Amino acid sequence: MNIPFDFSSLDLSDPAYIEANRRGQITQQQRQILGGKLGNAISCFSSFASLFVLPGLGLFGLILLAVLKADALVIFGYAALIILLSLGVFIFVTFRSYHHYSSVKKDLDSGLIQTADGCLEYGKDKYEASLGNGAHLVLPRVWNGLLPGINYLFYYLPGSRIILSAETRSVMPPERAREKLIEILGKANRFTGEDIETNRQGDMTFRQIVRLLPNILVGFLFTLPGIAFLSYFLYILLLAPDADWKENLVAAVIVTIIGGAFAVVGLFITVKSLSDLFSFKAVSIEGEGRKIRRVSRTRSNSRSSSSNTVSYYYRVAEKEFKIPKRAYLALVDGLTYRLYHTPRSSVLLSIEPLISPVPEELSSSGRNT
């Protein structure tokens, strides 16, 4: 099993890399990048999984068992199980990482380079270097210079199957390359050719209705508790037989503000989503497209701990649309896109590039397929 290490500083389209790899040589910079990244692989994978996650869950379980006054034998057995699981994960991940590290080191020591023809295909949540027969090579998580719609000659290390560089072999015609990117965006964002054709006519399909359901659910989750909270406490404070509304007036105002805020926010979200649902309409915007990744840090009451929340967006014509993680890398930055969305709740329905992802100089080079 190959581990997709993040060789973010390895530019696969660098002419110097391609020229050296074409001669069967690995540049010193490539060696430094690969060796430096892999040197930290074992500690990165194994320490996090076995030294933090499982023991943390184990400690929580021990505290819970102690609170419940469980039998000492149960507590001892649980602790032993967590220790064994942590040790097993540590050994497994360390062995796998070391095995892959050894294969890369062996590749670099031997200096052998193999080649294969392939292209970019979109997998579960990222691009993959597909060889067309079900086989794949290891791509950097952040790759530079490679685009869908181009067939490449990949130079790679035979043991670890890590790509060193990629040379353009042939280019799809512009319209075919554009259609290829639409297929990729459709796979990543879960829309079909029928969906986008209907969106072009200004309508939604029945299949796309489900995209509105999460917003409607969120609206109800805000509205119903807000109304229930407001009604219950106002009754207790003002309408109960023994209530003294003069003494409870300040509390009633606070309750009204909190419960009312939840209800208003929920109703706002619900009304917008239901309006889009019943209108069945789609609108579009056009402009340069960019993908955006935002990390929000939430600090707990204890200053020593915090958690990060990652959100992903497409930005088209300065308007942002939230997307699932699987769709983030599918967008090719800098192209002009037409994005279809619901008119009020701004839920992304589909998206298409208006130009080919392949640069014009490559498309006109005469190496079209």
Rank of each mutant, 00 (worst) to 15 (best):
G260P: 04
G260H: 00
A261N: 12
A261W: 14
V264L: 12
V265M: 11
V265L: 10
F268D: 05
T270N: 08
T270K: 03
V271E: 07
V271S: 08
K272F: 01
S273M: 03
L274E: 03
S275M: 13
D276I: 02
D276T: 06
L277C: 03
F278C: 06
S279M: 01
S279R: 05
F280K: 07
A282F: 04
A282K: 00
V283M: 04
S284W: 00
E286W: 01
E286A: 01
G287L: 02
R290T: 01
R290A: 07
K291W: 09
K291S: 11
I292K: 07
I292V: 04
R294A: 05
V295P: 09
R297W: 10
T298I: 12
R299D: 12
R299W: 11
S300N: 13
N301Y: 13
S302E: 14
R303K: 14
S305D: 11
S306K: 10
N308V: 07
T309H: 12
T309P: 09
S311R: 02
S311A: 13
Y313L: 04
Y313P: 03
R315K: 14
V316Y: 01
V316K: 01
V316D: 12
A317H: 04
E318Q: 11
K319S: 06
E320A: 07
F321W: 09
F321V: 04
P324H: 00
P324A: 12
K325E: 15
K325A: 15
R326A: 12
R326N: 15
A327N: 08
Y328I: 09
L329R: 15
L331I: 08
L331D: 08
D333K: 15
L335W: 13
L335Y: 13
L335V: 13
T336S: 15
T336N: 04
T336R: 03
R338T: 04
R338G: 04
R338S: 09
R338D: 06
